[in-house]
């Protein structure tokens, strides 16, 4: 039996984990589950595609399928996706949040998600596109596992992003403020935390990481308007499995979901892959709704 599925699961899981960080932060700080989060991924990937197109072609870095333009485009696209999230918050979510009906905000995110996704279909059609059509050679690394240079590069990038996020949340002043606000909004206000800045930071981080995940899916698989919708359930499941509000939990949850999906593809059949996240979600809700690292609701 080949152990390839473990590597595939690890890679899929790290993309799910990057998405889940945004969902878990939005949920714990802004108090709503953002159904438009998957569409941030898709918009990020298309934004990077547009920027790459504008920058023009260049030769890829030796073993990789992409060069500096894609990395530069990814940074620009992360900024653009963050901007999209901030604009949506200013126009829609922020106003509804001010009325204090959190479930209405969820509904608005559902409407926004449908509109964002269909807008992508309108602009780019529903057929998939690619950053590069070059075929990459996979190098065997033992136990029947093969890995491409792109996969190595993106795993390193994910590791860097997650470590950076963790340090930001634990060590920086803004990160501490975000954690404080998520644990007790009223008390955070009393001690003088600037709530508007906390909310802005939450959107920027969530959208930028979603964009990074979207670009990675684009590099490793393909870019489609529906890519975000397809990842939404695994992302929610990962955030809940990890425990809402916990960044390491979201990443761990993502890896568990990714590996379970890969195992399901290996042992059950590829067509049932999308059901795995649902089964795990139901199991968590029935057995341990607070998730792995969560705290009990007060």
């Amino acid at each position: 039996m080949s152990l390839q599925f473990l590597l595939d699961g690890l890679i899929a899981g790290s993309m799910i984990g990057l998405g889940a960080i945004g969902v878990t932060l939005t949920y714990s700080i802004l108090r709503f589950s953002n159904f438009a989060h998957g569409d941030f991924m898709a918009w990020g990937a298309y934004a990077a595609l547009a920027v790459v197109g504008a920058l023009g072609g260049s030769t890829p870095i030796a073993p990789l399928s992409f060069g500096w333009p894609l990395l530069a485009a990814m940074v620009v696209a992360m900024g653009l996706t963050a901007l999209l999230a901030l604009v949506l918050d200013a126009l829609l979510f922020g106003r509804l949040r001010a009325r204090g009906q959190s479930i209405i905000v969820v509904m608005a995110s559902f409407g926004a998600s449908m509109a964002l996704r269909s807008l992508l279909e309108f602009m780019f059609t529903s057929s998939p596109t690619y950053f590069s059509r070059a075929i990459q050679m996979a190098t065997p690394i033992g136990f029947g596992v093969r890995i491409t240079a792109d996969q190595v590069a993106l795993l390193i990038l994910t590791l860097a992003l997650v470590t950076g996020m963790h340090l930001f949340m634990q060590r920086s002043q803004r990160g501490r403020e975000m954690r404080a606000y998520s644990q007790n909004p009223a008390l955070a206000r009393v001690v003088g935390i600037d709530v508007a800045k906390v909310i802005r930071a939450t959107w920027i981080i969530g959208a930028a990481l979603a964009c990074a995940a979207g670009v990675m899916v684009g590099v490793l698989v393909q870019i489609r308007p529906l890519m975000g919708l397809d990842l939404l359930l695994p992302i929610f499941a990962a955030a809940i499995l990890g425990g809402i509000g916990s960044v390491p939990g979201a990443v761990l949850g993502g890896l568990i979901i990714g590996l379970s999906e890969a195992a399901a593809v290996q042992f059950v059949g590829a067509e049932w892959r999308a059901a795995v996240a649902f089964v795990i979600l139901m199991a968590v809700l029935l057995v341990r709704p607070m998730g792995l690292y969560g705290v009990a609701e007060r």
Binding site: Y27, F32, S33, F35, S102, I103, V106, L232, L233, F236, A237, I240, E271, W272, A274, A275, A277, F278, L281, M282, L285, L286, P289, E297
Partner: peptide, 26 residues
Amino acid sequence: ATLRLKSDYLAITTFGVAVVVQLVAL
């Protein structure tokens, strides 16, 4: 499964129900 928890969990789970029903139908 969900209604003893926060209201968002029902939303997420119903979303999952639709995904799984679609998968079974296919």
